[in-house]
Design a protein around this nucleic acid. Structure first.
Lengths: 333, 333
DNA sequence: CTGAAAGCGCTTACAG
DNA sequence: CTGAAAGCGCTTACAG
């Protein structure tokens, strides 16, 4: 009971007068074991709080029971809440399957940190996120034959991924804005390279099509990544008399909000604004900004489950999550 | 060269016609080895890109070469940049010593996630942070005899820690504000339970004493943790005709800034404000807010080095970092 | 259903 | 300076 010496499988075998193989099999449930001996072992184990050495088990099975998570070095600037929730989803699911999570931070190009985990055989598989790494990492992992799951989408049929249903979510938010009577919405985004922006754009367009509202391509702007660019875009938007601004993500939205504030334009009285991606910056902004909220934790859980399925040799399929919410706030009142 | 089969120490021994012990010793440098054989082994290793199995090595040495990092579940709300920088410092230092970092997320009370790492013997030591966990975690780790390092301070002589020189930093910032001619500064903080707030207060007081400026205790407020409380405090501050507000951390500061904005008070024309802890909220605030910036990465590196020293049996001592900066911004112009 | 034995890939006293 | 052997704490074919 209260003794805190560390038992080994051999100790249990000796105390119970059976072999180590039998103890091992009783624990794992593999092979045939009589109910009676199995229970004896299990009882002993729980009453003596025996914990197998995951390390030794792993060595024997050629596994580590560790998962690697690749984090971008600048995750806190981009979307702290996303990574936090994602991590907690991953850790939770991993723990539930007796796995632990190792982290590796990279600027998205530098492979050395990820490489460590792989060549040192510290992990059984890896989770990366589209926003954290570029194709090199994917390429590296494929080449090294390391099982991995991508958070975000990939056109590559060999890569397993989980993603938010960005298109559908954006369609829905746009739909709601159209229902509210907005008719000339500008769409403003960052890099057109980001695959996610294509999905978001599609959602925006589809909502218009479905309701038969025309889109003015003069109100479509990409590559808005710094204040000057945002200011220029805002000028055009005002000149074109748009009745609202839809931003593809929270950082673009923060830029636009700053511009509006500088020009002393009242939100939502003079112009409305919404974002396809939420963050504290928008939630606590004055006024608070309407946006989409995705369930990052669910995304993490899903990615982890997929990776575990891969590792276990179970059927694995990509997963598109519909767990988003449209958060209507002051900015579109 | 280009072959990608995984070598074991036994393969090397066979190919080189020596024993595995000799190979092992050549790599580790332990024991006596002739320069000649050592070089042969090392050459073989680098030309064949041999990577020892850290897992097997660990099992033989009763080590894991893993460090555990306990993260608070809500780190992204509190200070994402702090944890990010800290993590990157830890990961970097760990990697430099052939260690990897496992994470464990907890709400600060729930020990189960941390317990996993310990009872499963997945890590050699653990890094926790004062802002992430309460005394239970410390207590648990002490009891389990797991080497650990605390980021933040502890009065417990058995606890190893690294911390910022909060008192000195706050003294310096206050000093500068006094030099600028401010004479009636209010000091506003959150929970008085937080040990760090005591240090910050001391720094504030010391600066006043050293310059012979009296402190009005009517201008000292703690437990300011939500908007209503902040509004009340602001009323008093204005009534008492303070010429500035010094906040003990960024969230208190954000609360005060919101209040000021609501009352349409101009910063810094009508009242100045500064914070003892920086974050993006203050940096990007309009106007930007003067504050202290601590070097979280250095803190992480330092914590990691201390833990590694502990694990290696090297002399280990607590470390107080002086790497802070006073960032003067618009709010105190 | 159970056990003896070999194996996972290293390290390290011990002997020479 | 080097090697044979035992050991780290598990698993798992193989034989019974």
């Amino acid at each position: 009971m209260g003794d805190n010496r560390i038992y080994r499988i051999e100790d249990i075998a000796r105390e119970l007068g059976i072999s180590t193989s039998t103890v091992s099999r009783s624990i794992s449930g593999k092979g045939r074991i009589s109910q009676a001996t199995r229970e004896r072992v299990l009882d002993f184990i729980s009453s003596h709080d025996y914990r197998p050495s995951v390390q030794a088990k792993g060595l024997a099975q050629n596994k580590t029971y560790n998962l690697g998570l690749v984090l971008p070095l600048d995750f806190s600037e981009r979307s702290p809440a996303f990574f936090k929730d994602c991590m907690s989803g991953i850790c939770e699911t991993a723990a539930g399957n007796n796995y632990d999570v190792m982290i590796s931070m990279t600027d998205g190009q530098d492979l050395s940190q990820i490489s460590r985990l792989v060549v040192n055989r510290k992990v059984d598989g890896i989770i990366i996120s589209r926003s954290a790494v570029d194709w090199r990492v994917e390429h590296f992992l494929k080449e090294k034959n390391v099982p991995f799951v991508l958070i975000g989408s990939s056109p590559d049929p060999d890569v397993f991924f989980v993603d938010n249903n960005n298109q559908e979510a954006c369609r829905e938010l746009t739909d709601i804005l159209l229902m509210k009577g907005m008719r000339r919405m500008a769409l403003v985004g960052g890099s057109a390279q980001h695959r996610v922006n294509e999905d978001r754009k599609q959602g925006f367009f589809r909502a218009h099509q479905e309701l038969g509202v025309p889109i003015d391509l003069n109100l479509f702007f990409m590559e808005v990544d710094r204040p000057v660019k945002a200011a220029e875009v805002l000028e055009k938007i005002l000149r074109e008399k748009a009745d609202g601004i839809v931003c593809m993500d929270d950082s673009v939205c923060a830029l636009m909000v700053d511009c509006l504030r500088e020009k002393r334009l009242q939100i939502p009285q003079e112009i409305r604004i919404a974002s396809f991606y939420d963050s504290v910056r928008l939630e606590y902004n004055i006024p608070s900004v309407t946006s989409l909220r995705f369930d990052a934790k669910e995304l993490g859980q899903s990615a982890c489950r997929l990776l575990l399925a891969l590792l276990g040799g179970y059927p694995a399929k990509n997963h598109i999550l519909d767990g988003y919410q449209v958060i209507l706030r002051e900015s579109t009142k």
